[in-house]
Amino acid sequence: MRPFEYVSAPDVATAVRAISDAPGAKLLGGGTNLVDLMRQDVERPTTVVDISGVPLTGVDELPDGGLRIGALVRNSRLAAHPVVRARFPVLAQALLSGASGQLRNMATVGGNLLQRTRCLYFVDASAACNKREPGSGCDAVGGFHRGGAVLGASEHCIATHPSDMAVALAALDAVVEVESVRGTRRVPLVELHRLPGDTPHRETELEPDELITAVEVPASTAAATSRYRKVRDRASFAFALVSVAAAIDVQDGAVAAVRIALGGVAAKPWRAYEAERVLTGARATEAVFREAAEAELAGAVGLPGNEFKIELARRTIVATLRQLRVEGGAA
C-alpha cells in the first residue's frame, strides 16, 4: 500500500470539504473494498478521508411508509432492522447473502454501492484493463470471464458490479442522496451506475468530490412480497453469478405490480424493465414468467465463459417469481 495522508472527518461538512480540497482523495467507510484495493495497488489515493465517525447511521421511517437509510449504516445492522425485515424482505435477504458476517459488520451502505468490480483482470496490475488504465485494453474478453457481464457490456469492458444490496435497492426504486460543496442532489439508484461504453473507468454519475449521505426507499405494495435469489458457486461467501431481486403484487391471479432487478450480469444493478412490462397486468403463470424472462434477456450477449448466465438468468427470474407467487398466495 502506498503512503497517504489520513484525515478523519467528524461530520459531512468536513468530509465534503476534505475531498473537494484534495483531488485524488478517497472516502473510507468500512474499508472492506478500498483497503483491499489499495493493498493491491489498484487504488492509490493520496488522501484518505475517514468518514466512519460521521453520524450518518440512522434508519428512519418516512411518513409515507418508506425508509431513509444513513450512508454509514452497517450492512448487518440494516439487514437486522425490524422494518426492513418486515416490509422490505428483498433488501434484508440481499444484504445477508453478501460477503460474510465479519464483512457485513464493517461494510457501509454507501461503500457497498460504490464497491468496485471483482473482475480478475481489474485487480491484477500486470493485465490490460480499460477500467483501471483507460486505453490499455481488456484482457477479460479473451480470458477468464465467468463473472463477466452479459447485459450492457462493451468491447472495452465486461466487468460486473458485485453488490447484492444495490440489486435489491434498484428493484425498490431507491434514491441516493449526494452531498458536495455545491450542495445536495438526489440520484435514482438505477441511474447511479453507468454502463461501460468506451469509458469503463467512469463507473458512476457521481463527481469525485461527492459523498453519498443517504439512501431513500419509497413505500411499495409489492415490496412486502419480495425476495432475493442469489446463485453462486458455493453455498455461501461468494459473489453472485446471477441474482434476482423481485417484488410482486398479484391480485386475482394477475400481476398488479412488479419490480425486478438482476445482479451479476451487468456493470450496474440491472433493472428488468422489459420483464416488468410483459408481466404487468398479465396472468401470474409460469409461461408468462418465462416470456418475461425471455424478453429481458433478448439483448443479452455472452462470451464462451459466461454465456451460461443468459439461460441461468432466465431460469432464476422464473424460479424467483414462481416462489413469490406461492408465498404471496399463501400470505
Binding site: G31, D50, L103, N105
Partner: peptide
Amino acid sequence: GDRIAACLALAVQ
C-alpha cells in the same frame, strides 16, 4: 462485541 476482519481495518480507525 462485533466480529470484524482485522485485515481490512486500518488501525487508526
